[in-house]
Design a protein around this nucleic acid. Structure first.
Lengths: 217, 217
DNA sequence: TCGACGACGAGACGATACGTCTCGTACTGA
DNA sequence: TCAGTACGAGACGTATCGTCTCGTCGTCGA
């Protein structure tokens, strides 16, 4: 019943410098594999430990919950993927983010098309959904998920929109953080909640509507 | 292990005409109360049965899962609420739905402001989140949730937008089912995922951006 | 009027998974 | 060299799962 640093003998905090990197990685791999194979609800701490060849205590020592393990595993996966992508394009592109060819509509459409394709990647789908779902019901994890994974992505759109404002392609009085939601959120909702299918044509349409509005001009 | 109508003796389907209405209601009430009080993950079938004063088998006989119980409980709650609302306004409003004063922007803003207030109602919040979360990870339940709860709501927006098209306030080539997502989905995402706070000012801004676009006119 | 049928409340049952704990081992820093 | 601690392994008691088996009760057809 007693958790960390509560009454009685304060449980000594584990020494992070002695932590086993090997176990950490094995736990990430096992967690992601299990979620993809049997689904989040059937993924258990005991299952992760067994698959990783690790004692249960090693998991409980470093993480507070199944969701927490998965969040860090997915963060690690994202970092690796970003690292790989960054190294692949290396010098020919200045910074990674949303391209700026000067044509805002085309740039947004291209990135959203790529996002649609990514959302269909089964390796990402299961853990993404699991984390999003847990975050809906668990505010603490939800905020961590947003702060560490979602918001950095959204920031890229905000940056691109700000650049467009300076180029005069977006009105100066528009808030980029809100404007980006006009095309990002509809895609997110369709994907998360299965409200309707997603496609390249769909995201193209979203960009057109968002840029020009739906009223007669 | 063997579920309904599989091998061996086919399990006789329960006779719905002999179903206890009293138990059904007690189960709905207990499920909603427990989710609100202790949260969805800690809500158990055994807990619902005990609180409802009902045998576990009575739940397993009529529902396939905890999520299924909650979906029906919430549907029932929504129907009651809709019934009450419909009876309250009775004759002074012709049909319930989104008002049509002729001013599209004002009508949408009013409804979205009301939605913001609703989303803060604690009685709805816990079960809504629980169902949405379960639907993210469980496609079958997700689709049922959308079809029976979400889509009927969205249809009201589509209807209002179609009326606006006939009045010439929305371009004829715009797809209302997509257009409505420009202001509904951002609100949904902020609420579901805690990506940012929601307010009346925020939804007003969404409507303005969606109607007129973010580019210079 | 009465007997069978089946849903009901209650709870026993074996199977998991929970989170804590206690081993013996192995590495590491003083 | 030796104390300290993370580690793999797994035993432990508790909680909930979904199935099952009771005895009770209300309803419908003979």
């Amino acid at each position: 019943m007693a958790r960390n640093q509560s009454a009685g003998r304060p449980v000594p905090a584990p020494d992070a410098t002695r932590r086993s990197e090997r176990s950490r990685r094995a736990i990430y791999d096992a967690a992601l594999a299990l979620v993809a194979e049997v689904g989040y609800p059937k993924t258990t701490i005991e299952g992760i430990a067994a698959r990783a060849g690790v004692g249960k205590q090693t998991i409980y020592r470093w993480w507070s919950s199944k969701a927490d393990v998965l969040l860090e595993a997915f963060l690690d996966l994202s970092e690796q993927a970003a690292e790989t992508a960054r190294r692949a394009q290396a010098d020919d592109r200045p910074a990674y983010g949303i391209p700026d060819t000067g044509d805002l509509a085309a740039d947004l459409k291209a990135v959203l098309r790529a996002t649609v394709d990514e959302l269909r990647d089964p390796a990402f789908e299961a853990p993404s959904r699991a984390l999003a779902a847990e975050g809906v019901v668990n505010e603490e994890l939800g905020r961590a998920f947003v702060a560490r994974l979602l918001e950095p992505q959204l920031q890229l759109y905000a940056d691109r929109l700000r650049a467009a404002q300076e180029a005069g392609d977006v009105r100066a009085d528009v808030d980029p953080r809100i404007a980006l939601e006009l095309f990002v959120s509809p895609l997110a909702q369709r994907w998360l909640q299965y409200t309707a299918p997603i496609s390249h044509e769909y995201t193209d349409t979203l960009v057109d509507y968002a840029l020009h509005g739906i009223t007669p001009r």
